[in-house]
């Protein structure tokens, strides 16, 4: 998806630049020729430049739309279901999600999980005991 949208965008930009440059050259040509023939008539652009401009814009728009990130669900329950699952994925998936969403200014996982977890009231001594028990049971061997 990234490759497709990038190549479409690149093609669109190249053709748009080409069309703009052609139009500029054409206007120079007509103005110099019209001054020699001393007639003030405004000549229209050739059809191929118009078509090139429109097509390049179309390609560019398509590329940008394809490259846009996937839309977030607009129904609360669907969104809730998707973020709820982010709290139980594997470590690698979680890392990828954080990379993707936190960098974009969002959050990962259930935003209300803090109410179950309550870091402000974290009982650090109990957590340390729990960890020490886990090590004693041979959890570190895993």
């Amino acid at each position: 998806m990234g490759l497709l949208s990038n190549s479409l965008n690149l093609t669109g930009v190249i053709f748009l630049t080409h069309a703009v440059y052609s139009a500029y050259e054409h206007s120079l040509l007509t103005s110099s020729s019209s001054s020699s023939s001393s007639s003030g008539e405004i000549t229209s652009l050739p059809l191929d430049i118009t078509i090139e401009t429109l097509l390049s814009l179309l390609v560019l728009c398509t590329g940008i739309v394809i490259g846009a990130p996937s839309l977030r669900p607009i129904q609360w329950a669907v969104w809730a279901s998707s973020v709820e699952k982010e709290d139980h994925v594997s470590l690698e998936q979680r890392r990828a999600l954080v990379e993707e969403k936190v960098r974009a200014g969002g959050t990962v996982g259930n935003p209300f999980a803090v109410l179950d977890q309550r870091n402000g009231f974290l009982d650090i001594r109990a957590k340390r005991r729990e960890f020490a028990d886990w090590v004693r049971e041979g959890g570190a061997a895993k």
Partner: peptide
């Protein structure tokens, strides 16, 4: 590291 920015809500010992 990304997983330290927003770790899992309930962190297992491992």
């Amino acid at each position: 590291s990304a997983d330290l920015i927003q770790p899992f809500p309930s962190i297992s010992p491992s």
